[in-house]
């Protein structure tokens, strides 16, 4: 089989995933797009492993590892999205804008201010009070 087929398919899948990551608003859809990208990589790994006839099967082993890591990622990712949704009432990626600099100190989106909700980070309570 021509190597270009899986390789090009992987490239196209990867770029579709890339588009999804950049364009989707819902965080869960973004996670789906990430899965697409990971699968594109997996496809590449498997194809090259088969092509190279690697004695160690490094490509396939790595694919398995990637799948495992992807499973872990999706679990953690979904947990984070749930947490964000619980605190913010929304899981829209482009509304989580606490990283932006606000010279006037006003909230970008009407009080339901975004925050990057890494779990170790305390919530800025004063903002909520000010908004209330």
């Amino acid at each position: 089989m021509h190597l270009a087929y899986p390789a090009v398919l992987a490239v196209l899948l990867f770029c579709v995933g890339l588009y999804g990551v950049l364009a989707r608003r819902n965080a869960i859809l973004v996670l789906m797009s990430v899965e697409l990208m990971l699968n594109a990589v997996n496809l590449n790994l498997v194809a090259f492993d088969v092509w190279l006839r690697d004695k160690l099967h490094a490509g396939q082993a790595l694919t398995l590892f990637t799948i495992a890591v992807a499973a872990a990622e999706i679990g953690i990712g979904l947990a984070i999205v749930l947490l964000v949704y619980r605190n913010r009432g929304s899981s829209d990626v482009d509304r989580l804008r606490d990283l932006a600099e606000r010279p006037d100190g006003s909230d970008p989106d009407d009080g339901s201010d975004p925050n990057d909700d890494t779990p170790g980070r305390p919530r800025p309570d004063h903002r909520a009070e000010a908004a209330a």
Binding site: L18, Y19, L22, A23, R25, D94
Partner: peptide, 17 residues
Amino acid sequence: ADSGNRWAALIVAVASA
């Protein structure tokens, strides 16, 4: 369902592809 920078994403994705 799509955010505002959909066209930029499209350009980046197509160019990368």
